[in-house]
Write a protein that binds this DNA or RNA. Sequence first.
DNA 1: CCGAAATAGTCAGTGCCCTGATTAATCAGC
DNA 2: GCTGATTAATCAGGGCACTGACTATTTCGG
Lengths: 154, 154
Amino acid sequence: MAAVDLTTHPGHLARRLQQAHYLLWNTMVSEEITSPQFAVLNALVAEPGLDQRTVGERVGLDRSTIAEVISRLGRRGLLGKVRDPRDGRRFLLRLTDEGLRTHRKLTVRTARMNQVFLAPLSADEQALFFELIRRVADAAEGLRNPAEPLVAQR
Amino acid sequence: MAAVDLTTHPGHLARRLQQAHYLLWNTMVSEEITSPQFAVLNALVAEPGLDQRTVGERVGLDRSTIAEVISRLGRRGLLGKVRDPRDGRRFLLRLTDEGLRTHRKLTVRTARMNQVFLAPLSADEQALFFELIRRVADAAEGLRNPAEPLVAQR
DNA sequence: CCGAAATAGTCAGTGCCCTGATTAATCAGC
DNA sequence: GCTGATTAATCAGGGCACTGACTATTTCGG
């Protein structure tokens, strides 16, 4: 009888939070485009011509996952990739008109969804919610990336 | 240039939080047993003899996902399933000795990991962190399950 | 200039997560 | 008792997420 209370386990809560979000996204935003796909579109609206790896870095996806997501977006005709003439290893990514249109449309719906999702919290609590999660996630990421030395003297 | 700031999007934060947790779990708890698998073991420590669907309900996994997780735990010999003699549709699940041992071992490591994961927050903030996430997740789940009427008069 | 190290991307493999369709067993109303 | 609805589990299919191994290209040291 040494069972544990999962509601005090941050990993379990994080998973439940993400599932809840997934569901709501599906009903309120899009059944075609997923939240990670929207994140990629958004990164390319902010910085057109990024390469694949950098997009992954911006949205927090590893090289394998970002490759799949981009391939799906490419198949849907939302973005195009061209070899970087200055570095033959890279592909440069750019949204198509269709991709831009999709991003615009989803931006509106996403804002609505976020309001519904966060409705149980007051404005102050929402700010706290963001801050606490960000601090925990940032710290954990820092544990993995061995904290780029401020004076990089490799 | 209508790009959005993803750090104010709860879904994006939830995903990053979960990824950070996944990484830490892998290095501090186990490379074999995942966090959802531990949740299932834990549910069966608390309530031995549950059927598959109910376990899924306890830990927040749908029927398809719980089937996969249980099949993996079965392959590893951590649990056994028997047909319910009183209801031939159900399988009753029970941990093996090996399963109990694994749960005990991981419980200790999980506690350590949670401490490290939550270290950036003070005790008060940790309590807030749990409460805010739980409120948002519960509310979103409530949106889907049409809120079982208190006086069920179907 | 040339070989070694680093970097971008792909591929194979594992696991989580959902939906919709199907199968088998049980239950409820007539 | 039988038929129809419900329920537990499985299966097919799509997408996200990671690791480790591999290929191709670039860059750096000598």
